[in-house]
Design a protein around this nucleic acid. Sequence first.
DNA 1: CCCATTTGCTTGACATCATGAAATATCCAG
DNA 2: CTGGATATTTCATGATGTCAAGCAAATGGG
Lengths: 143, 143
Amino acid sequence: MTAPAPAPMDPLTLEVVELIGTVVARYYEEYDTAAARHQLTGAQARVLGLLSREPMPMRRIAEQLKCEPSNVTGIVDRLEARGLVERRPDPADRRVKLAAATETGKDTATRLRASLGFAREPLAALSEHDRATLRDLLRQMLG
Amino acid sequence: MTAPAPAPMDPLTLEVVELIGTVVARYYEEYDTAAARHQLTGAQARVLGLLSREPMPMRRIAEQLKCEPSNVTGIVDRLEARGLVERRPDPADRRVKLAAATETGKDTATRLRASLGFAREPLAALSEHDRATLRDLLRQMLG
DNA sequence: CCCATTTGCTTGACATCATGAAATATCCAG
DNA sequence: CTGGATATTTCATGATGTCAAGCAAATGGG
């Protein structure tokens, strides 16, 4: 069994974990909703977001998404069919196909980022000082 | 780094959003990994976690998961086929089927919770006082 | 240079998860 | 008692995920 010994967890830590769970749920919800407004699934939106910054080989997309490369084929297929992404040959390696966002795709990605309500709404409840504290705590948490 | 903000968003807020994104990514990764150790998918683990606390109608599971009830049928089917969950009639309403975790299911849920490294590792970096501050900020954020 | 191996991508078969429409059984208000 | 709402399931469909097999191209040892 790989199951580690059940560590005793104090109520405070337990509550923080639960709160983080809620944040995670709300984050995903907002992300999917924003994607749906542009007729995209969550996975498609993530890939488009990646490619809007710079073209990249299919292989690297799979690494970023932590999934199999064969999966990326389909996602890029659908984005390509809608003119948001295109495949280009890599001059340095003819095996590689570089996926790149088209102008339309970049536009969509930009509008998608802008429509992500998560950034504004929940954080608006916090003062500047509180946001700074939150940032420091999260930084520390993530090491 | 994130592309230039399309909407006016101050750098502090932007950084907090990005940190939350990182937390979310790590959280999902750990959750799926922990679930996989018990031969469960993420959705199955979530449902089992819900039912390990108390039995509940299919309808309510769908609400918690924010998905269609027809979807829950399949997930509970698979959990039931493995003896982790069972369907019981609701004595108060014969339309309703209560899904309940079996003893085996509760065991699995407990071990799953215990193997969730996310609770211990990142939060261990924070002092008791910091955890309390983080809890308060998250509470405020979630309204 | 040659060939075996590795690497990048695609394809196919299959399971899970999500939606929506339609069917069935039950509840409830009037 | 009847008509409309509710709870669940089934079916069709599509997106996402895995894995194994296949092809093309790169790479490295002899």
